[in-house]
Each structure stands twice: as structure tokens, then as C-alpha cells.
């Protein structure tokens, strides 16, 4: 009965399933080719970025050569340009950031994944931290200038007065400087590091933790000797990405690092980074200076690309083996 009914319906409305018409096939081919073009465009876009920035910088690269990377003066009036202090500042600030932001980020990840808190608070705290990652860096910069620097200046100057013989404290903090910049940067990378480390920690099967407890470990013996080593690849990838972000971060540094062309180990002396150099000099640069700044941009591009590609490879490697099983 029902079979004959559906048969009848099919005769009235035509079959439900029809093979595609030649027009459909044509549209299908066109659309597929179209999307393939956009996939290619993604590759081309990266190539274009490198080519365009590199091409504009080429005259400067030819003229200045490697000396640009080792020179220590930046004086447009004399025509002397060198970015060693900026390269140093970029790495120094990023390493400090990694040290501070990394350790706090991992601590937060452990705190949020290892049942220190009831589940609900855990979720609220996790999404709050994610939301804080959305605050624009210029706002952190503003906060750094008007809240953080006045707050840490007395502490920094006390450290300089009492422990001034240690190279790290060899200057006093007069305003902007390396330490406030690194502190703000570490607040900014903290959500990234915390989020990736949390993923790595919660991807560990419960069995592994239970096995550790079963052998009589305390909670922290399990965390330090079993869980963190198991998640280490994912955490390491997160740290590398955070490091990459710190290398390229511009606004917070341009506002807080002091933009002074010096090579110093001191935490409290002003310094400069590649990104801050670009941000401050580009708007008023002459054509000649623009080429030189492009050279600095090429250096920054290659440093960040290298760090990011390494981080990306580590994360995808740890997803394939170990980590997430």
C-alpha cells in the first residue's frame, strides 16, 4: 500500500534523486576551480608579502649589507644606520617576557586543569582569561604608562640603590624602560600560553593520572613527574608561539620601552625593538629612510617567520604523536 503510494508520488513529482545536468556539472567545475584559485592565492599572499617588503628593501640591503645588522648607531642626519641594539632589544624583551609570562601561564594552566577549583568557577575563569586576550595592545600600553610605571618605579629604584652592582639593576628607572615593557608584554602573552598549555594538559588521558596516583604519588609528584612531561611538547609549542607574539608586538613596546638606541643588560634602562623602531620612524621617513626601514622590516619578518614555523611544526608534531592520543 505505502509502496504504491510513494510510487505514485514519484510519478507525479518526478524522481527525488536526479543525476546532475550538464549545467550543474559546469557550475560545479567552475566553482571548484574558483576556490582552488583562492587556496593558491593564500600561498601567493605569503610570497607576495616577502617579495614586496624584500623588493622595496633591496636597494638598502645591497647598499648596507651585513653591516646594518651589526651597526649600533641610528642617525638619519649623518646617514648612519644600524639595528644591533634593536635586534638585541627585541630578543631581550621577548626572553624576559617568555620567562615571566611563560611561568605564570603554565601555573595558571595547572591551576585550571588539575581540579584545584570547582568546575563552574574553572569555566568562568577560563573564559575570562580568554576575553582578556581580546584587549587591544594599545590599551595595555596606556595602562602601562599611567598605572604600571608609577607603581614599579620606587621598587626599581630601591633595587638599583641596594643591588646596583648586579648588571640587571645597573641603572635606575626614570620612566619607560625594558622591565615595564616586558612586564606588560608578559601579561599580553599569558592568555595564549595558558590556553595552549591547558589544551595540552587536558588532552592527557585520565588513566595516566590515575596510574600515577595508584602508585602513591602526591598530587604535585603526579603533576611534576607525569603530567607536565607528558604535555611538554604542547606546552613548548605554546611557549614558542607566545615568544613569536612577543617578538612582533609593537604598540605596548613603542609606548613603554623608551625607544632609546642602547645596548644594555639593565632591566631598567630604556631600550628599543625592531617593531617599535618601525612604528616610530615610518610616519616621518624620507624615501631613502623608508628603504632602510624596509630592511629592518625584512629582518623582523624573517625572525618571526622562523619562530612561528618552528612553533607550528612542534605543535603539529606533538598532535600527531604523544600529547593527544
Amino acid at each position: 500500500m505505502s509502496a504504491s503510494l510513494s510510487n505514485q508520488q514519484q510519478q507525479n513529482d518526478g524522481p527525488i534523486a536526479v543525476p546532475p545536468s550538464s549545467k550543474d556539472i559546469f557550475l560545479d567545475r567552475t566553482f571548484r576551480t574558483f576556490t582552488t584559485c583562492f587556496a593558491w592565492l593564500t600561498l601567493l599572499l605569503i610570497g607576495y608579502i616577502v617579495w614586496e617588503i624584500g623588493g622595496t628593501a633591496l636597494p638598502a640591503i645591497k647598499e648596507m649589507g651585513v653591516g646594518f645588522l651589526t651597526g649600533t648607531t641610528w642617525d638619519p642626519n649623518k646617514g648612519e644606520f644600524g639595528i644591533l641594539p634593536q635586534i638585541w632589544g627585541t630578543f631581550y624583551s621577548s626572553l624576559l617576557t617568555l620567562l615571566l609570562g611563560g611561568s605564570f601561564g603554565i601555573a595558571i594552566a595547572v591551576f585550571l586543569t588539575q581540579d584545584f577549583l570547582p568546575n563552574k568557577i574553572q569555566i568562568v575563569l577560563k573564559s575570562t582569561i580568554e576575553l582578556l586576550a581580546a584587549i587591544p595592545s594599545v590599551v595595555y600600553g596606556l595602562w602601562g604608562i599611567f598605572v604600571l610605571i608609577p607603581l614599579i618605579r620606587p621598587v626599581a629604584n630601591w633595587l638599583h640603590a641596594t643591588l646596583g652592582w648586579i648588571p640587571f639593576f645597573s641603572t635606575s628607572l626614570s620612566g619607560p624602560g625594558m622591565f615595564p615593557a616586558a612586564l606588560v608584554l608578559s601579561i599580553m602573552i599569558l592568555p595564549t600560553v595558558a590556553a595552549i598549555s591547558q589544551d595540552a594538559l587536558s588532552a592527557i588521558p585520565d588513566k595516566i593520572k590515575e596510574a600515577a596516583y595508584g602508585m602513591g604519588t602526591t598530587r604535585w609528584e603526579a603533576i611534576l613527574k607525569v603530567l607536565l612531561p607528558t604535555a611538554s611538547r604542547g606546552i613548548f609549542g605554546g611557549l614558542v608561539l607566545g615568544f613569536g607574539r612577543a617578538l612582533g608586538e609593537t604598540m605596548a613596546l613603542a609606548m613603554l620601552v623608551g625607544n632609546s638606541n642602547q645596548l644594555s643588560l639593565s632591566l631598567f634602562s630604556p631600550a628599543d625593538t625592531l617593531a617599535a623602531l618601525l612604528a616610530l620612524n615610518f610616519p616621518e621617513a624620507s624615501d631613502y629612510e623608508t628603504q632602510i626601514l624596509m630592511y629592518a622590516a625584512v629582518v623582523l619578518l624573517f625572525i618571526t617567520l622562523a619562530v612561528n614555523i618552528i612553533g607550528e611544526l612542534i605543535i603539529s608534531y606533538s598532535e600527531r604523536s604523544g600529547g593527544k592520543k
Binding site: T42, L45, I46, I49, E52, I53, G55, T56, L241, G244, R245, L247, G248, E249, T250, A275, L278, A279, F282, T290, L293, M294, A297, L300, L301, T304, L305, V307, N308, I309, G311, E312
Partner: peptide
């Protein structure tokens, strides 16, 4: 695309400038 997410935002400005 993943690599591009890591490109510093100032370099996007440098590119648009050029």
C-alpha cells in the same frame, strides 16, 4: 595561513605601505 596568523601586525602595515 597558520604562519600568517603569526606575522606581526606592524608588518601588515609595512606591506600596505609598500
Amino acid at each position: 595561513a597558520k604562519t600568517m596568523t603569526g606575522i606581526p601586525s606592524i608588518l601588515a602595515g609595512v606591506l600596505a605601505y609598500a
